[in-house]
Design a protein around this nucleic acid. Structure first.
Length: 272
DNA sequence: CTCAGATCCTGTGCGC
DNA sequence: TGCGCACAGGATCTGA
């Protein structure tokens, strides 16, 4: 479900919700089996802690409390829902944080591909250690870096930009969209893309991610902001999910094909 | 190192 | 309406 713009949107929503730094009065773990188990100490350690801040790295949310930090990945179907203490617990609400201001944050994740684990700042972390640069960071994500990284990659460029070791945050929707904007066919070998094309690709990735953040993310089905709102970038997609429909730029027919296990969309006239 | 495919899960939508 | 199957915003692991 969530790529960088969606996680960024959730983070901003959560930041507003916890601005007063409420204390976590009670933690309820209803289903600990996610992609990895929620630690057995989760409730005990977080009880009584003030919820100080939420930040984002790649597609991970990082929660900071008085004495601890924990990370959360939304997997394919994770959402945070805000309710009050008397709000109805819903199916697939795996973890609930009851706050001192009368509100409650519920982590809901039907497919359970999400992650909820403690994190220690400065220590090597299984999930965060091997991540590539943030796409919006101009300093680390540039042509020089990317061409060196892709030099030995024969896999399709689309698969390469979805590899979180190459660059983080780009998932299946925005990979297709960015390649369309850059005019590059998703099937081309990553190591055969010229530096000029990589420059266009980098710019396109930034452009589409920024626009999607402004639009509050893309809601195809599940995605919700922390306040329950849908995103609306789905109305601005050029190619994703539009196979058989007409290209909005040239009116040629949008193509699709599975690349590296994921459905991929492009326009054969606009991309080469 | 690189890469394709299987894998973890539930829900939905489609064809029959 | 019901059933089975394919597929879905991710990312890791396996084996070639």
């Amino acid at each position: 479900m969530p790529e960088l713009p969606e996680v960024e949107t959730v983070k901003e929503g959560l930041k507003k919700i916890i601005k007063s730094q409420p204390v976590i009065e009670k933690v309820v773990v209803r289903q600990k089996k996610l992609r990895t188990n929620i630690p057995t100490t989760f409730s005990r350690k977080l009880k009584g802690q003030a919820l100080v801040d939420v930040s984002r790295r790649a597609k991970y949310l990082i929660f900071e409390t008085s004495d601890h930090m924990f990370i959360n990945h939304l997997g394919m179907s994770g959402i945070w829902r805000m309710m009050d203490h008397k709000g109805e617990v819903q199916k697939h609400d795996h973890c609930l944080l009851y706050l001192s201001d009368g509100r409650c944050l519920a982590y809901n994740d039907p497919r359970r591909f999400g992650i909820m684990e403690f994190y220690k700042e400065g220590e090597a972390n299984k999930w965060l250690s091997h991540l590539g640069p943030e796409p919006l960071d101009v300093k680390s994500f540039n042509v020089k870096y990317l061409s060196a990284k892709l030099k030995t990659r024969k896999a399709p460029i689309k698969a390469a930009i979805m590899d979180q070791k190459v660059v983080v945050g780009v998932g299946n929707i925005y990979a297709s969209e960015a390649l369309f904007l850059a005019g590059i066919l998703p099937t081309r070998a990553a190591n055969e893309i010229t530096d000029d094309e990589l420059k266009a690709l980098i710019n396109s990735i930034r452009k589409v991610l920024k626009k999607a953040i402004k639009a509050g993310g893309t809601t195809l089905k599940d995605f919700r902001q922390a306040g329950g709102e849908t995103g609306y970038f789905q109305n601005k997609l050029y190619v994703y999910g539009r196979d058989g429909a007409l290209c909005l730029t040239c009116h040629d027919k949008i193509q699709s094909k599975v690349i590296a296990g994921r459905n991929t969309f492009w326009c054969s006239s606009c991309q080469s």
